[in-house]
Design a protein around this nucleic acid. Sequence first.
DNA 1: TAGATTGTTAATCGATTAACAATC
DNA 2: TAGATTGTTAATCGATTAACAATC
Lengths: 218, 218
Amino acid sequence: MKNTKREKKFSNKTIERLALYYEILITLPFKKKYISSEEIGNLAGVSPSTVRQDFLYFNEIEGKAKIGYEVTKLKEALRNIFKLNSKTHVVIVGAGSLGQAIAGYDSFKKSKVVFDSFFDNNPNKIGRLFKGIFVRDIKYLKDYLKENRRIKIVVICVPPKEAQSIVNLVVDSGIKIIWNFSPTILKVPSDILVEYEHIGVSFYRLLFKRKTIKKEIK
Amino acid sequence: MKNTKREKKFSNKTIERLALYYEILITLPFKKKYISSEEIGNLAGVSPSTVRQDFLYFNEIEGKAKIGYEVTKLKEALRNIFKLNSKTHVVIVGAGSLGQAIAGYDSFKKSKVVFDSFFDNNPNKIGRLFKGIFVRDIKYLKDYLKENRRIKIVVICVPPKEAQSIVNLVVDSGIKIIWNFSPTILKVPSDILVEYEHIGVSFYRLLFKRKTIKKEIK
DNA sequence: TAGATTGTTAATCGATTAACAATC
DNA sequence: TAGATTGTTAATCGATTAACAATC
């Protein structure tokens, strides 16, 4: 059994790995009832020790010696940790292919993320449906966010040159959380949470690793 | 001046930050000739010490005391480190919105990444152009990769259930580098480099941070 | 010149790994 | 029961930060 007092600060890396463990668990075959820290580690590419250390921070995660962790319980615990069981309302600015890709992303279908609306400035897109989501005129974005307080997160999928002015507007309307896919650094007040998704960075990392691989082969 | 002998192993984090520095540099105003480690650090959200430590691994990066780093030189050095100056041929499997988003991603327009072709199994898409790139029938993927040896990287943008079978086929045809956007863990031989882009993981991290923010406010 | 910023070493901090008693 | 795996502490490893002489 776990100690009850346990409020150490966990690192960003722990959070990232927990999300990864969750993605692994949801792709597991149904018949699998228990999983050990060793198995999780193998699938996630980390040591069993690291898996157990990550779990140590959370009282809701509990395994059984000799047996491992009950898969359904572990999944549920992770869903709670990430609050995936409560609805999250989101708006996407930019109804291009990137915005559509996010709205249609597979993992979200298993969560309670609700995409309320697209916003775009392209007259050919305004009024249409993409992935079943209505596209509104971007000039109504500020009013919409002010009137629909359930919306907590805004996703930025516009070209980098337009990103900052839209973010200013979004911040003005009271939104505190921004998920930014536009490859540019945003200036925001310190109480705003911005999570960057740098697709380019991930590709550069790939190119770099390629170089080192080639050296190893020679 | 830098010491010439310098072959310490740099971490994954260093590579990631270097890519981030590069993205920052390309969004800088033209008139800016020099930049200090402090300024870079502020923009990237790391300490000046970390910036200088990262640069320390690379002899091609050199600054001037009191002045800082020459922006154009620094950009060029980073382009060399990531081999962005030589062409990289890439094929995208899955011509859905995600695949299209990658093909149209802004940062790549400044690099020499060439998207040769989409592959898809949807008859309505085969033969069409998306973002100026031709969509071929997925049944010709293996032959295409074997005949066009210039293609070094395959991007996976298909639903998770189809991902593994396509990856098997790609590996069979001799490809060594895979960039996977499908939210599933892939099984590949040990000599294959797979870079995962978990969009979902990034969103979960955001949800988690939101929770801790709320606590701080209360 | 004087002082700001680099390049680099040393000190600190944090994260990962190892080890092992508890236990199912 | 015996042995495999957890929960947890301690040891190790690596990454970040601090400090400062060199220098432009």
